[in-house]
Design a protein around this nucleic acid. Sequence first.
DNA 1: TTGAAAGCGATACCAC
DNA 2: GTGGTATCGCTTTCAA
Lengths: 341, 341
Amino acid sequence: MAVTIKDVARAAGVSVATVTRALSMPDVVRAATRERVLETAKTLGYQPNRAARGLITGRTGNLGLLVPDLANPFFPGIVKGVQARAHEADHAVFLADTDENPAAEAGLVRKLAKQVDGVVLCSPRMPEAELRALAADIPIVLVYRRIPGTPSVTAAFLDGMRQAISHLTALGHQRIAYVAGPRSSWANRERVKSLRAVGRDVAGNGSPAGRASAEGKVSAAAKCELVEMGSVTPTFEGGVAAADGVLAAGVTAVIAYNDLVALGLLHRCAARGVRVPGDLSVLGFDDIPLGAMVHPALTTVALPKGPAGRAAVDLLLQERKEKRELPTQLIVRGSTGPAEG
Amino acid sequence: MAVTIKDVARAAGVSVATVTRALSMPDVVRAATRERVLETAKTLGYQPNRAARGLITGRTGNLGLLVPDLANPFFPGIVKGVQARAHEADHAVFLADTDENPAAEAGLVRKLAKQVDGVVLCSPRMPEAELRALAADIPIVLVYRRIPGTPSVTAAFLDGMRQAISHLTALGHQRIAYVAGPRSSWANRERVKSLRAVGRDVAGNGSPAGRASAEGKVSAAAKCELVEMGSVTPTFEGGVAAADGVLAAGVTAVIAYNDLVALGLLHRCAARGVRVPGDLSVLGFDDIPLGAMVHPALTTVALPKGPAGRAAVDLLLQERKEKRELPTQLIVRGSTGPAEG
DNA sequence: TTGAAAGCGATACCAC
DNA sequence: GTGGTATCGCTTTCAA
């Protein structure tokens, strides 16, 4: 069987209590003893049983992580960030993939609850009330979702949207479509809110309101019209399906809910012989690796993934109840260009 | 605090022993008592503490899962399969991403060891000796790697390669390149082995040796030359880098180590104005979602991902020491076509 | 500075 | 059938 603390104690000729101390409160045990204990622990290959420890300390050294769908290329980056930070902090992480089933989320979290010190909920789809109830029972941190009173990590959507529109207007686009994601999605609501805010600055023309953030980059010269198009499933197929509508809308540029949708748009354009960015500029949101691999490569607003995951773990471990908003960054690639005609 | 078995016992007016029985050996307790216990357990929202249970039973109800890099689109599918099957069997899963660091693998597994009933090692990069040592200490199942004496789940590479080459020769290709992956990679060695086996059948011409499997689909008529090209990093960038060499090799078709490499090839071809499949047919291995989204879409040999993950969990939970080989399937899309000229 | 012993939450064995 | 209790591996008083 595995080597336990007793084995170490016996081998080192001390009590189990001393072994514990040597390991977790080194300064309270005599140097010579400590050395001997540590030495034998190492040679025996002793690894403390975290479950047993957790039983008494109440801290398990484990974290939970819930994602809607690992196959969605947006999430692996976040998972990696969570993992990396957790391992640095010597924590292991339980992963649960809900397969985009909102009803399964709470149950999975509750099952994990006893075995973890807290859980990171990545873009949870469950209703706010349920989220609140969960938060009351176990420490949670939200990533890419925000509700009052719960710590969260999100990104500066407004600024990202401003960068996007600023980029497009600078290229001369005056009529830009936005292909929306699911109405029930927090991420979509945020984008729409940002879009409209920027739209107000820009539509009335001239005077750059610049209310919100200082960097009112959508400058005076800009003047453009934003047309919101009905929501689609936030997938490649959703984008493919939306493409014809966009092409019929008489716009020269389109901002997609996310990169997957943008990729679908791109695909359908290629199939229909529409030149990108010649006939239509396409801009995404997320910055998934895929976007850089297609041709033309996708211009997109990069959302922090690894850093978001790390930040979430930090909040969890430090038990800080704050909301953190990470920066977004426009990444210009080949799918956007000057408006023609 | 959380509700424990004692709370349930007290509330139901029985001993803790009876509560345990009511929950895990229902038939040994009187019906009336059982009902009452179950009832109060439910109203109190009792969830047994798995860590405490594991302490005494030796079974934790947890599984470990090690992957080299979640950002590699090949792995999420496997992880999802593992998850799904594990949850069905009421097990939670610890995920560890090693970031392609072979040296970190064994340590991570050993850290998890105490908290899991076994671990699934997904394409582990560590040396065979290390793997053996691990297997001696804790139950493991390998996925997409095979070593003697250890249960594993892999795929029928030989058959897949045969389908691929058969497809290409049927299209009239007579000179086909293979862009190899890392020499140290088990997956690459398997592919090369398969390639050469099929090559022997096909090069000598006529008589379809058909040694290995019955389905010697590369038929008599076929006659073609296989050229192996130096190994690349198994990434998009690796493919981009390999493209010029392939184009200079005077082949009409190329089989890439995996889809990512194939995508890189495609990208570079597009950039150089090489028509695919007109000037060059490109065939990948893996079938990652990405492959269907690019234009032209990628023809590829699909490797089982979800099913592989599920099978691995099955082997682990049933403690069966067998090797399972899942089927592969050629998926024909737009990136392969008739040889021209 | 060290050891003995009391638990943490659950299971399993032994009485009754 | 049911209740007491030792036990899993570890941490944490409490004494010495």
